[in-house]
Amino acid sequence: VTPAAPTNNPSHFMKGAIIQLATGELKRVEDLQTQDFVRSAEVSGGLKIDSSMVMDIRPSQQRPGLVSLHFTVGEQQSKVTIDVPPEHPFFVFGQGWSSCSPERTAQLYGLTCHHLQVGDMCVSITLQQQQ
C-alpha cells in the first residue's frame, strides 16, 4: 500500500488555484477538463495518462481516518492500492473532480465534487515507457 497522501491540505486543490498545463496555458483547478490532462501528457513527452478504475473503497485498516482505494491501472490492469484522506479529489474521465466525501472537499477546498464510486475511471499518470 502506497503511503498516505499528505494530510495537510494541498493548496493546488483550493478553488481558484492556478494550474499550468504542459502547453503553457493557465487554468483554474475547477475549470479543468479531461482533455487538458490528455493534451498535457501528450505534450510533456515523459508522462503517460493511464485510466485507473476504482475497484473498491473501504476504510483504511492501517491508517484510521483515511480510506483505502483499490485501483486497476492501465493496459496491464495492475493492482494498486493507495490510502488517502476521504476529501482527496480525483479527476474522473468525462465527469470531473470526485471524492469519497464531497462535503468535506467542498468545506476544505471549496471545490465542488461528485461522489467517487466503484467503477469510476480516474486520470492517473505514469512514466512513458522508453521505446
Binding site: 493548496s11 488555484a17 494550474i19 499550468q20 498545463l21 498535457s40 491501472v73 495492475s78 492517473s124
Partner: peptide, 25 residues
C-alpha cells in the same frame, strides 16, 4: 506602493495520482 502579490502556479501533474502501473499489490 503596493507590493505585487505573486500568485502561486501549480503544474498540472501535481493534481493527479502517480500510479505506476508496474506496481502491484
Amino acid at each position: 506602493n503596493v507590493e505585487p502579490r505573486s500568485v502561486p502556479v501549480f503544474p498540472w501533474h501535481s493534481l493527479v495520482p502517480f500510479l505506476d502501473s508496474s506496481q502491484s499489490g
